[in-house]
């Protein structure tokens, strides 16, 4: 999923939450594959390999969480844009809630450990 740059740990951590990140990006605005990859890089998730995005959005589409359409492009053939569905928004809301709980818990533990260092 990820290149070596971000390390194996980053890759493993992202594996369970990358779908939610993609849903969040598409919830902001409709995007196509390259835009999703660029947005992840801009957010500091450069360890995600661009190629892993395409199977993931296809999976989200197959689950009915994303929808897609082809729009003409000025620089070549049409591009497939992805947009979030109502089911996708519900899934995103649940993912955000879960992530908040997990992040708060992990953060508390890691901070306690750091004080003990």
């Amino acid at each position: 999923m990820a290149s070596d740059g971000g390390g194996e740990r980053g890759s493993r951590l992202l594996r369970g939450i990358l779908d939610a990140c993609l849903l969040a990006l598409v919830a902001e605005q409709d995007r196509y594959g390259y835009e999703l990859a660029a947005a992840l890089r801009e957010a500091g998730l450069g360890m995600v390999r661009d190629g892993s995005i395409y199977p993931l959005v296809s999976r989200l589409e197959a689950k009915g969480l994303l929808d897609s359409y082809v729009a003409p492009s000025t620089s070549g053939p049409g591009r497939r844009y992805y947009r979030i569905t109502d089911a996708g928004r519900r899934e995103l809301w649940e993912a955000r809630t879960t992530w908040k709980q997990v992040a708060t818990g992990v953060d508390a533990i890691l901070h306690v450990s750091r004080q003990g260092d």
């Binding site: 290149s3 196509y32 594959g33 390259y34 990859a37 390999r49 661009d50 190629g51 892993s52 395409y54 082809v70 620089s75 070549g76 053939p77 049409g78 591009r79 497939r80």
Partner: peptide, 26 residues
């Protein structure tokens, strides 16, 4: 063809940024 076109554009834009096809696709 639609997928291949999309992929080619992605690889070309990545190459313009100095990233190889292997870095993009594995």
């Amino acid at each position: 063809y639609e997928r291949l076109d999309e992929l080619r554009e992605h690889l070309e834009r990545a190459a313009a940024e100095g990233r190889s096809p292997e870095e993009v696709l594995g």
